[in-house]
Design a binder for these strands. Sequence first.
DNA 1: GGTGCCATGTAACGAGTTACATGATTGG
DNA 2: CCAATCATGTAACTCGTTACATGGCACC
Lengths: 178, 178
Amino acid sequence: MSLSHAILAALLDVSRTGYDLSKRFDRSIGYFWHATHQQIYRELARMEAEGWVSVEVSQQDVALPRKVYTITAQGHAQLAQWIAEPSVPSPVRDELMVKIASGKLVKRDLITAELQRHRQAHLDKLLVYRSIAEREFPNVNRLTEEAKYQYLPLSAGMRYEEHWVEWCDEALRLLNSK
Amino acid sequence: MSLSHAILAALLDVSRTGYDLSKRFDRSIGYFWHATHQQIYRELARMEAEGWVSVEVSQQDVALPRKVYTITAQGHAQLAQWIAEPSVPSPVRDELMVKIASGKLVKRDLITAELQRHRQAHLDKLLVYRSIAEREFPNVNRLTEEAKYQYLPLSAGMRYEEHWVEWCDEALRLLNSK
DNA sequence: GGTGCCATGTAACGAGTTACATGATTGG
DNA sequence: CCAATCATGTAACTCGTTACATGGCACC
């Protein structure tokens, strides 16, 4: 049950609504975890029942209900315990690789077009991450312990997208060479 | 429904049993797709019902039943059609990042130990991939079109593991610096 | 007045995981 | 003879996705 821990992590610093979580997760966790709003609402309800989060219905705008979730002491404990359990790298599932491996079934142009689309998507993400990094962490050599833990997932995100852009380039080069 | 396509891809060149598929998938697809034997048996049954694969019970050893699955023309068509549909990069879900983002909750040693474990796991995979690459594709500049499609997922796997090893090193450096 | 966003949810279904179960063969 | 591996499967459950549904607010 790992979505619940991702949600707890996203609630560590700020209380949030389900909607909020579904939009951005936390800015550092969003790069590596995704969930739809339906999943999040369902999970929040469970977590409240378990006592990992508490909820307060905001009465600011009486018309629109906003359920703001806050992590509890029990939630903290739960998260800390989960972190302490050693884990193995999360398994990868990549559709593009399945397509490439079956590449001989279709026209080459189809594959190269797909590669170009993916390259662009990865590049777009990379540029977003870089601009966030410049804005939020202009001085990587002077980070507090806490800031390091926020910076590192972003850095992993950048490396990850760079890696894919480079691989797409390699793949396109290889396929276009005689 | 993507597991079915991964299975079709794994059956492209060779007929296989469910057990076989669960162990290795295809050597190029296994790097980027994983499934348990229960999933695979269930999916194979569905795919047979759809006519995407045909099955033959091997009578070699009468005692042990071996159901060998082969991709059909309909399966080929299905796979080709799926490949032609443009797709977006598969979403990432990485537990380690959730742990890192919540790093301040626990002792730093716990995080660095986890990073070292992950670094080792990625390095191990990298070395396996490299030895496969040396054995199967000693001459990357002289590949047939078909071989290129087999080599590329392996190359992506190598880059992927390299990227993680490098990032783990960066993370350990950053966390151990004053 | 319509489009898009904020904000919450239900229902149904498909995909993935965990536990349980069986029985033969191979190698030490 | 015991453990590991080959080989197949069922059942129950959780997680993830898609479709449907509601209603207010903000802006053009």
